[in-house]
Amino acid sequence: MDGTPGMHRLEVEDFTVGYGAAPIVKNVSLAVQAGTVTSIIGPNGAGKSTLAKAVVGLIKPMGGRLKVDGVDLSGRTPERLARSGIGYVPQVMNVFPSLTVRENLEMGCFLRRSKTRHRLDAVFTMFPDLRSAAKRDAWTLSGGQRSMLAIGRALMPEPNVLVLDEPTAGLAPRFQTSVWEHVRTVAGLGLAVLAIEQNARLALSNSEQACVLVLGEVRRRGPGEELLADPELVSLYIGGGDGGRSLHAERTA
């Protein structure tokens, strides 16, 4: 995993995504460098998950380009994007419940079966909990273990890019922190990480770059620390109880 520093690993240019006439995500562009985390925050219904699904090919964008390491991958199927080094951790349904932990990880390595043993060791080293649970069926796992397994599965084929869709959803705060520690570790391996996150404070304090997505458009962007220091942003999206309500007002206006 030798990322050339400064080279854009993942580039999303002018993405427009939707199902019908009215797009959910409008003209979103972003770039994630190797070894860094870019997080996308924003209210419910802003189109964050839709954007993530479009990046990994599960929804066909209505317009825009997708590049990894400068290679245009627009319009490819999820299978081919996975082969091109894009890993994805969905928000829900992120493990195969009827398979064991080990089998889940093996499925992640479908593309490079000869490397399975080697990769299993690497993932088990990163997530020691998974090693002890290797023979358990995935549906018996706790929420925290499940998130670890989902990330581990996505890392099995040694991707260059990792897209995470709300990896902390539904987890207790201490597990949320632990998930983000792992996200940092993953970035440290040289991957370009794009993370959707509900918990804006957690996301911003762990990301090099961040975008605020509202109603399908990028409303703000900048280094995570900088956005975290912005009082207006904090009061809208992070601070007390008002954030959600004022956003709701903005949506219905």
Binding site: L58, P78, E79, R83, P90, M93, F96, L99, M107
Partner: peptide
């Protein structure tokens, strides 16, 4: 059979 989309993004055909 478990999760079609997840299998696709894992690279399974």
């Amino acid at each position: 059979a478990d999760h079609r989309d997840l299998s696709r993004v894992s690279g399974l055909p």
